[in-house]
Write a protein that binds this DNA or RNA. Structure first.
Lengths: 261, 261
DNA sequence: TAGTGGTCTAGACCACATC
DNA sequence: ATGTGGTCTAGACCACTAA
């Protein structure tokens, strides 16, 4: 075996959690049991447990057997990539309506983002995403040709393109999201049912493989009265983690602007 | 000593890095040297090194002595809390102009956010933040009284309030940032020199102590042509980390909206 | 009280980097 | 060839939890 023992223990436990064999709140086997099970000493077992704890999958404390975290089974990471995964995770029904899917020559802006030549073809997709049938986000996505072609034999109204591409083996791994605000143009206004010029939350995303090859570029615009982004972080040097997720805009989202008259 | 040996090793090395004794790119002592230095075996030393690596302060690889990361000395975490820290870190000059600082009774919305009674006093601050003298962000902050009082003997135009409060021992630890888009109101328009109704990127932040006590609430509005937020993440289960930071809006930020006509 | 995880030691072998 | 970190073992003691 070239794969280290502590890695084998780690992936074994992780698989049991992600597959649903172990559910939130369940207790893991004790260290002694794991040692026996893998014929290992405590070192590798503890290394695996420590890594899973850092990963956020389990929680440990002295004197008690580790338990599976009660966080969403899907890591927030995945939710942040996939609109469908997020909406499903919060117990709502995601919807999508494909306005257009086309294979065409890249224009200068998109060819630069996707790092392809100006005369290369790319696949473009325009979709309206909704939550419980209410239009929430307008998505303008561009794929490099070899990835985008996989969408022509896929019903883009049926669910998560991201999930489909990953199943097909597309190595989507790293995402860089740039967040700002824009005024709705005519197309935004039409599909999101807002007045032209109203403020939208824009998230532009460049998705790459682990090697840094650009696979996808997207310009997503959210109705701010329907969805927000949330970032949680902490200064504490130990166990500092950052969580990013979307959230439904709370009903009571009061206007806190003119509080200092 | 009740504090574990590996913790002592860890904080010792971390202090040397944060104090500037060890600079980006410098090599740490080897494990053997650390063992001798602390009179320890390899276990605790490796545990400390592993933690520092997870923290992002150092980088390790087989056969080579660990080196101090060349990431910004301040973690992105800190940059995301503090406007001044961020602007300074990117080599620009931060500026701030305090429009108003006042001790007054909390209105219903703010008292709810700060979790104080309706009849309690809070400290409110309205500041224009700028980069290289260009107004970039309008900040409406509210502090619980005992924290806010520390600002009356502090020149709020001189720099980072966050830094000042932390120096005073205010246990600012956890932040929850809600990000959306709003249309500029009259006050926004006046101080940011934009037309009324133009889209602004809004970041509302609730800052709490490690115990969850709410200390500060802020409503920050950015000119999207001046500053963006960036979120980087990865799907890979191992070493998955999320980075959030601000960035200057690139000059070449092309409009990618009407690409699918 | 018995079992658990948290800490630490002492020694070993291997893969990799450097000279 | 030597030193480095990566891995693993076997045993020990302590602090905490739960029955």
């Amino acid at each position: 075996m070239t794969v280290p023992l502590h890695e084998r223990v780690r992936t074994s436990i992780r698989d049991r959690i992600l597959s649903g064999d172990l559910v939130a709140g369940d207790t893991l086997p004790s260290e002694a049991e794991l040692c026996a099970q893998f014929g290992a000493s405590r070192g590798p077992v503890r290394q695996a447990i420590s890594a899973l704890s850092a990963e956020g999958l389990i929680e440990t404390s002295q004197g008690k057997v580790p338990t599976v975290s009660r966080l969403p089974l899907k890591q927030p990471i995945d939710d942040f990539f996939s609109f469908s995964a997020w909406v499903t995770a919060i117990g709502r029904i995601p919807g999508q309506h494909t306005v257009e899917i086309a294979l065409r020559r890249a224009d200068p802006v998109l060819s630069a983002e996707l790092r392809v030549d100006d005369d290369e073809n790319i696949v473009q997709l325009l979709r309206v995403r909704s939550i419980d049938a209410e239009p929430t986000m307008l998505e303008r996505t561009a794929f490099v040709a070899w990835v985008g072609r996989m969408l022509f034999d896929f019903d883009t109204d049926s669910g998560s393109i991201f999930g489909h591409l990953i199943e097909q083996g597309v190595p989507l791994d790293h995402g860089e999201h740039t967040i700002d605000a824009v005024a709705a143009d005519e197309q935004d206004a039409l599909h999101l049912s807002v007045p032209v010029g109203s403020p939208l939350l824009r998230v532009r995303r460049v998705t790459t493989s682990r090697d840094g090859e650009v696979l996808e570029y997207s310009d997503d615009r959210y109705r701010p009265d329907r969805a927000d982004l949330v970032v949680r972080n902490a200064r504490t040097p130990t166990s500092q983690r950052v969580f990013v997720t979307r959230q439904l805009t709370p009903e009571t989202s009061g206007d806190t602007s003119r509080r200092t008259p």
